[in-house]
C-alpha cells in the first residue's frame, strides 16, 4: 500500500481525474473531499462490504429458484 502524509488543505491526485483533498482533521477523524467523475463509484468501505453481504444473501438457492412462484405467492399479512 502506498502511504502518503498530507495536511488539511493538501490533496492527492489519482490518475487524470480523481482528486482527494484532506478537508479537516479533528476528534480522531479525518474529513476528506473527493472529486471524481460521475461514473466512478465512491463508497465508504464498510457500507460497500455490507452491500456485498446483502447481495450474497439475496442469491437464490437451487431450492428457492425451483419454487420461486410459491415463494412469491406466500406473502405476508
Amino acid at each position: 500500500m502506498l502511504v502518503l502524509t498530507r495536511k488539511p488543505g493538501e490533496s492527492i491526485r489519482i490518475g487524470n481525474d480523481i482528486i482527494i483533498t484532506i478537508i479537516d482533521r479533528s476528534s480522531g477523524a479525518i474529513k476528506v473531499g473527493i472529486d471524481a467523475p460521475v461514473n466512478v463509484p465512491v463508497y465508504r468501505e464498510e457500507l460497500y462490504k455490507h452491500i456485498c453481504l446483502e447481495n450474497k444473501n439475496a442469491v437464490l438457492s437451487t431450492e428457492l429458484g425451483e419454487n420461486i412462484l410459491d415463494v412469491l405467492k406466500k406473502g405476508v399479512d
Binding site: I51, E54, N55, N57, A58, L60, L64, V71, L72, K74, V76
Partner: peptide, 18 residues
C-alpha cells in the same frame, strides 16, 4: 431493487440502499 427471501421464506425485503 434486489429482493431477499427471509430464512423462513415468509418475508421478502428489498435493498433500497443499493
Amino acid at each position: 431493487v434486489i429482493l431477499k427471501v427471509s430464512a423462513d421464506k415468509q418475508r421478502l425485503t428489498a435493498n433500497a440502499k443499493a
